[in-house]
Computed example of a mutant assay.
Amino acid sequence: MVLPPDAVGFCAIVLAGGRAARLDGADKASVEYLGRTLLEHALEALLDAAEVVVVGDPVPTTRPVTFVRESPRYGGPVAGLLTGRDALVRVPRTLGVLAVDMPRVTSWTFRRLYEAAAGHDGAFLTDAEGHRQLAGVLDPARLDEVRPDHEGQHGMALRRLLSGLDLVDVPPEGDEGRDVDTWADLRDLGPDL
């Protein structure tokens, strides 16, 4: 793949625009865990990213990011991912994607994903049972090749979008593959280890 001269190594998208129905509609980005918002945890995990786009409503952050919303709202992870991709100013070699509700994902997680993706179209973290989570890295050119038209993005399952790509599944270390869908999930994460 030939990259333009302004390409940077790593840019990322945080998916934070869901309904959070099982969290009583709370804005997941603003939910606190260990004294910081879930969004701040996500941004710390993406510390190596040259640019971060957050797909969700704007909330205060300690790091400069771009906030965007998918159209129509609540279009699901594919619409969020592609909206975030379109909002990037830079041209990345590697595109990271992270759901805002995975506070145990770290920059080390993304380094492992990046290494696992070598020679493939990308890599995604799994949970303890081997189910793919919304934490991964992708070759943005390959993502562009499988991109559906705008109408086809709304409600599309991410696994369907990525089904034609050569992806590596990376097992979690500790609790990094856990997400927060309910208040009980947040409580059960417990203190940082």
Rank of each mutant, 00 (worst) to 15 (best):
H150F: 14
L143P: 03
V170P: 01
H41Q: 06
L38Y: 00
D6W: 11
A42K: 00
D121F: 04
R112P: 04
G17E: 05
G25F: 06
L167C: 06
G84T: 01
L82I: 10
D24H: 09
L134I: 12
R19N: 08
M1T: 08
A141Q: 14
L95M: 11
A49G: 06
G174R: 03
D149F: 10
A50R: 13
G75R: 01
L186Q: 07
L39A: 14
T106Q: 03
V14S: 02
P172K: 00
P64L: 05
H120A: 07
L189G: 07
T83Q: 04
V146K: 01
P191I: 03
V146N: 00
G122A: 03
V53Q: 00
R85M: 15
D121R: 02
F10L: 04
G35F: 08
V170H: 01
T66W: 11
G122M: 12
H154D: 11
S107Y: 12
D166C: 10
L189C: 09
D181Y: 11
R159T: 15
V68R: 05
D179N: 15
L34S: 15
V2G: 13
M156G: 09
D175Y: 10
G75W: 02
D57R: 12
D185Y: 07
A29N: 02
V14N: 02
S163V: 12
P64E: 09
G136F: 02
D127Y: 10
T37P: 10
T61R: 00
G177K: 00
A49D: 03
A20S: 14
P140G: 01
L95Q: 04
Y33V: 14
E173L: 14
G152N: 08
L138S: 01
G84F: 01
V105N: 06
V31A: 04
I13D: 03
G80F: 09
A117S: 15
P60W: 06
R159P: 10
D139A: 13
T94L: 15
E70V: 04
A141L: 14
V8P: 09
P172S: 02
T62P: 11
D181A: 15
H131W: 11
V31C: 09
R104K: 12
P172N: 00
W183S: 09
V31T: 05
V8G: 04
M1P: 04
G17P: 12
A87G: 06
G152R: 03
G76E: 06
A21E: 12
L161Q: 05
T109S: 03
L138M: 14
V31Q: 05
D6F: 13
D24K: 09
V168K: 13
V91F: 14
L38A: 00
E40M: 06
D48T: 12
A123N: 05
V14C: 02
E70Q: 09
A135M: 06
R160H: 08
L165K: 01
P148M: 10
R93N: 01
P148D: 08
G9M: 12
H131A: 14
A50V: 13
R73Y: 01
G122C: 09
G96Y: 01
Q133R: 15
S30P: 03
G56L: 13
E70H: 09
V170N: 01
L39P: 07
R112M: 03
L15W: 11
T37H: 05
T126F: 09
A79L: 13
W183I: 10
G76H: 04
D57T: 08
D27C: 14
H154M: 11
L138C: 08
D175V: 10
V137L: 01
L125Y: 03
D27L: 15
E44M: 15
V2P: 12
P191Y: 02
T61Y: 02
